[in-house]
Write a protein that binds this DNA or RNA. Structure first.
Lengths: 210, 210
DNA sequence: ATATGTCAGTTGCAAATGCAACAATATTAT
DNA sequence: ATAATATTGTTGCATTTGCAACTGACATAT
């Protein structure tokens, strides 16, 4: 991760108030935004944690993405269709920056430096985000629950440079993230434990194979 | 799609040769690039069709993405790991533009206009690409083969503004793209036909429900 | 302190899925 | 024209998965 772009500097520069940017606060479980209108909205999560979730016609929930500090999301990255109910839900108290992609290439009234910086930094942020999204696809294209679990664990392990790591959300949410049934996932985790492939202690897992 | 950024103008500007950009030609079935080294490579498919494929340890193939004219891909968008063998394979004869993301924000020796244009346009391209990738995630997070098929068909239908459409690859490849077993997919397609939900004529499908 | 709600962990059962194998057709190469 | 190759279509069978339902543990609110 050491060669990744650090968004912190970018956020720092936001502090000079730009008239096209809004900062809002959300309490845990509040809905931050819903992807229903085409308004090219882009958001940056300054503080807290949130999930992008979809509810299908059965009310079945899928966690599409999980956001932590400095993650970027927004309806601008989605083709909004009728059949999808996408929304971003705060999992903790959140501080969120909103702006429109439409304004990205227009200078604001104050002629602030913000847009120049934004244009320069935006594509770097995008490349980083693309990596995350592609990682997610890697996991989802695995055919079995077992492979999805191990695929995700491998990524967490690689990120931490350690065979032991914690999952960044509850097991219930992990099932949603891997897009599998929770009980089926629990069963598979049990099998993996029984076969000596992993160890589990609450939300902390250890990969035992070389 | 009418509000989408049109890459054609961008490609047009490439014609002024920039020393950091290479154009290469590939025959059908040739490997365009393999994601094994960290070199921040970005590619634009000027002509032809190609697939980003993964072969897992069993040799099982998954089509991660399908590229048509003007699509953008490259190892820069992936976190290269040991356990993944990713490569881009030409499905037809291809003409591909290669450049490195590292050079994106440095002027080239010739001080050509290319980089300025690239910087300005790149984030727009990225937003479009992000939409495609997120669409893919939408499909993959569906729990059943039926939902994946219908989800994908719905997208194709929406893109064409028509209940009838052709899939852009073979049924074999479609199964890989949806990340399901081919025979299971064929069976499900048969059920969908039997239930009067879809009609099939070769690679052309029609959605019969309102 | 007690109630309420969320999360982890299990299990039986039915349904969906993957696997293997094969035949029929279509496409491509020689 | 013919052979070789790829694709489509199908089926039986074993395995995996999802669903529903329930218990116990834990946390939070009143």
């Amino acid at each position: 991760m050491d060669d990744e772009y650090n968004i912190d500097n970018f956020i720092e520069k936001f502090s000079k108030n730009c008239d096209n940017v809004q900062k809002k606060y959300f309490k845990k479980n509040q809905v931050i935004t819903t992807y229903i209108q085409k308004r090219n909205q882009i958001c940056i999560l300054l503080q807290g944690e949130a999930d992008l979730v979809r509810y299908d016609f059965n009310g079945l929930k899928s966690i599409i993405e999980h956001y932590a500090q400095n993650d970027v999301f927004g309806e601008a990255f989605y083709t909004v269709t009728v059949n999808n109910e996408l929304s971003v839900e705060a999992k903790k108290n959140c501080e969120v920056l909103f702006f429109s992609y439409d304004n990205l290439y227009n200078e604001c009234k104050e002629h602030c430096d913000f847009h120049k910086i934004l244009m320069n930094d935006f594509s770097k942020i995008m490349v980083e985000k693309m990596k995350l999204v592609n990682t997610r696809i890697e996991i989802l294209t695995k055919r079995t629950t077992r492979e999805k679990i191990l695929g995700y664990f491998d990524i967490l392990s690689t990120r931490k440079f350690s065979k032991s790591f914690e999952i960044p959300f509850s097991l219930t949410d992990l099932a949603d993230y891997l897009s599998v049934d929770r009980s089926a996932m629990m069963r598979e985790i049990k099998y993996l434990k029984d076969e000596g492939i992993i160890e589990k202690d609450g939300n902390k897992f250890t990969i035992l194979t070389d």
